[in-house]
Design a binder for these strands. Structure first.
Lengths: 227, 227, 227, 227
DNA sequence: GATGAATGAGGCTTCATTCAT
DNA sequence: AATGAATGAAGCCTCATTCAT
């Protein structure tokens, strides 16, 4: 069961990534290493100027590569957006994998913990999420299809399983899993006008709201509930 | 009190819009009329290709204007994005104003009605909201500042007042109002993977979830609650 | 002889100006009045932004006219440049005419006085001269020909006559008259790096230099010479 | 002392030119070579139509480059104007450097020789000087500041030193150096109405006039004087 | 005579991608 | 495998002039 919750999607040879982000390079490890640098460099500039306003030249510079080299490991600007997305998911899964969620026996507590764990992670990568959630739609059709599938399988799927465990069923499961997935980025996407209060509270409040919305927390109170 | 809930923000002479979207044209009515056409034309093409991929030439064509004429009534591509945003808010306020919300005496029922009313409106303008919520960040700093202020005052402010009426207070009010505002676009932003089920249910489910999350609905049940 | 020195060139009906700057308007006085306003408005904006960077719209605004009205009294942007030039010459001649130069019997003193008088005038209209001496070349061929002819007849001609009176002759006369004409704008065209010293001296120094260059002042000394 | 008179200002790495005319190109030699071609091509078309009426496309064509390539080596149209200016100064200094001026021991003869040498040079590059002296003012503030500084340092500075050597001093030095600098372009800027006479004479006449104006030539005579 | 909205060609600049070295 | 120079199609915006009212 553990495996079914956190199932980090590493692309394997011959798998989607290869078809989506083709490269003439032979050495698979080198490709991985270079792409890591590309993602690292690209995000840095993307966060400042957004996807459209960032030029390939700037990405190459930030990645410490020449433009020729860059195009040796990717084949279009869109590819980079896709790699960033993939990178985000990998990071998230790694975070979850080391959080001990899987060892929690009680479904309610496991869900609560997953929420907190995810929110903490997102809070640590605000820029990344802000970026992804506003730029993803600009992927070309080909990449977009895959990203949406990844999101449904990995992210929504993750919540689907956890919610299923607390006893949900039917059509509403799909609804609930998507909604939770959506709520997780609330603080980041709306963060700008929540600056005033105690940061810590927001996180608890959001978890409470989510659980209560799901009907897992009786009445409004920040002290009670299965944590 | 009625007035304080729905307070449609029409720009007056000398008001923000004039400074933000300057035009050499003298006739204010003509400006309004032409800008209406620009917004209508622009949204049509924006929905298809997104802001960045849409050219000014296409906008002019879709608006039935020459490029020169277009630039007689706006002064940059960003202006158009801003006008679209403004248009959305005006539409929303008009919708609320004719919905009879203000006549509902009970605060809980009024909130519920406002939620439904807003969701219906957003549902009728999916393209518009999908577009706005992913492109707004690309406004230049000048326009962005105003848009965020408008959102806080008009949209968040609307929920703030309604939530206040049901007995909330303190820091959480801000949190709650923003969260509700955020939830309203859930169906639109995530709509793509909720296609399967009965469409009608989603709306009710989201209202329930929201009210329950706010602690205004006792237990999970799709039959109960103040509708 | 007096007349031959200062011969203010007022265009008469059917004269050059009419052919060069056509207008459908009938009332000659009205044309004059409107054009005065155009020149006044245009120079104001020209001085700030230069000819090319100033738009017709700005000129209309600065002249307190509509664009339609503007084009009723001129027929191209170049026309305005031409009118400005003409205006400058008219101003200069008026200045000379009221300076009493003509009454000075001694040719040397008359020349000296004319130099000073011109320099003072130019000093009072720095912007105008700076503008004219860098933009004139942008006149279209038709206007340019006339402007050059006017300059040769009125400005160079003015110096030609004065220099002739002090006893010059031959080919050198042409050379000298042109050179003096050229020297008069030195302070304005180069003024920027002569800011330090006493402004008053520059004027005297330039007169001395000119007279000495012409061989009309024995040795270098700012005290001697026919003033 | 020799060195202090003709000090051709070649831009070095990290020097002004780099900041003023940025380029993404790496190879410095290639930049030099390409810019040489740009200047050569640009001047050819500038001379015909002036700066404002010449399009970037025409410059690219005349330089034998694509527009993309052109913008690889400059970053705005103004840059080109600046490069032309710089080119003119480099040419002039080269001309002076090979003229043997520095070997002339007598200050008066050295000055006279410098005047002639400069006039000959200007005469050989009429178009260039005519162009530069009427377009410089259209440089944007950033470039203009540098151009004026260059002129003051290189051109005016050159005359300043020569005049100093013949025994001038004080405030008048500045005045005299600027005036001489100004007089050098007289023939070019006014050339159009000196076409008739013997061309050769003009040059001598101007030198005489200048020296006499400076008080270095006793009386008016075209035979005497230190040549 | 007056108004100012409308035209539309053309200006400068950018940049993802390719390819010779 | 690596480099970075080269391409050229668009992109956004301007503005002198005309013309319907």
């Amino acid at each position: 069961m553990v495996k079914s919750i956190i199932d980090r999607p590493r692309p394997r040879p011959g798998e989607p990534e290869d078809r989506l982000v083709p490269s003439p390079a032979k050495n698979r490890d080198l490709i991985q290493e270079k792409r890591r640098r590309i993602v690292a460099g690209a995000t840095r500039v993307f966060f400042e100027k957004g996807f459209h306003r960032t030029t390939i030249r700037e990405i190459a510079l930030a990645s410490g590569m020449s433009m020729g080299q860059l195009y040796h490991y990717i084949s279009s600007k869109d590819d980079i957006l896709f790699l960033v997305y993939e990178h985000m998911q990998a990071l998230w899964f790694d975070h979850l994998a080391t959080s001990g969620i899987e060892e929690i026996a009680d479904p309610g507590q496991r869900l609560t913990r997953a929420l907190r764990c995810t929110l903490e992670f997102i809070g640590q990568h605000k820029d990344l999420f802000l970026f992804i959630y506003t730029e993803t739609k600009y992927l070309d059709r080909k990449h977009l299809r895959v990203v949406l599938a990844m999101d449904d399988r990995n992210v929504v799927g993750f919540w689907r399983r956890l919610i299923l465990d607390v006893g949900w069923a039917g059509d509403e499961l799909e609804f609930a899993a998507n909604l939770v997935s959506f709520l997780m980025v609330f603080l980041v996407l709306r963060g700008w006008n929540l600056e005033h209060g105690g940061r810590g509270r927001d996180l608890d409040d959001l978890i409470d709201f989510t659980l209560r919305g799901l009907g897992l927390l009786g009445e409004r109170s920040r002290d009670g509930g299965p944590r």
